[in-house]
Amino acid sequence: MTTPDKHTDKPAAAKRQRAKIRARAVNVYYGDKQALFQVALEVPHKQVTALIGPSGCGKSTFLRCINRMNDVIEGCRVEGELTIDGENVATLDPVALRARIGMVFQKPNPFPKSIYDNVAYGVRIHALAQNRKETDEIVRQSLARAGLEQEVASRLNDSATALSGGQQQRLCIARAIALQPDIILMDEPCSSLDPIATARIENLIAELSQNYTIVIVTHSMQQAARVSHRTVFFHLGRVVESGETTQIFTTPRRKQTERYITGRIG
């Protein structure tokens, strides 16, 4: 399996100084229930950050704060400051913000249209291409970057729902990167896939991290260890510990983190 270090070919120190996403004192409430408590963390530029923690600890909630997908959940309220490149997301237009941030969900959710239309949809609504030829080129490139081009090149007009689960998930990734985002959010992207499809997605994540800032929520600690540069451990709506992945998994500073990664809580 690819280790993250192979891909941090640029000086790691220089990267770490630039935080792409910075959260300060973020509180999230679902109605009366508070889901996140004073979350503060930094996501470095062009690195993979894994959010781990037991179910219901708020890691997905935090992920959805980044592209303001929580806005569409009724009764959900977000407090605190969350900035991308120094801009507070609360002040940005959510539709424009989401065009800059790709998101991949737990269950592959291609549109029930052709493979081509799935990738081209975002390109069309944001008018990223001048003509049909440019759209074709973007679709081809996106599929190539998602490692799907060879498998589907001959059947771009077939229904996306006929693809296998792993192919569908890579199609969703292609759809997200067709908008040329800076950030890709992944919410347990491999949880419904078999080990072979999971391995392909993990390789893809490693490749994509050269060009994109990736935040991935995962239940699998092995996956976090394999793909991420940094790991953040959430528990009961709070950030318990964050740091370099190698450090978290070898010498955790907090007792709670250690107990979780050795499988005693969660």
Partner: peptide, 11 residues
């Protein structure tokens, strides 16, 4: 998932 997919693409 269809609604999420559309919204997340900036529709």
């Amino acid at each position: 998932g269809i609604r999420n997919a559309g919204l997340a693409l900036g529709a």
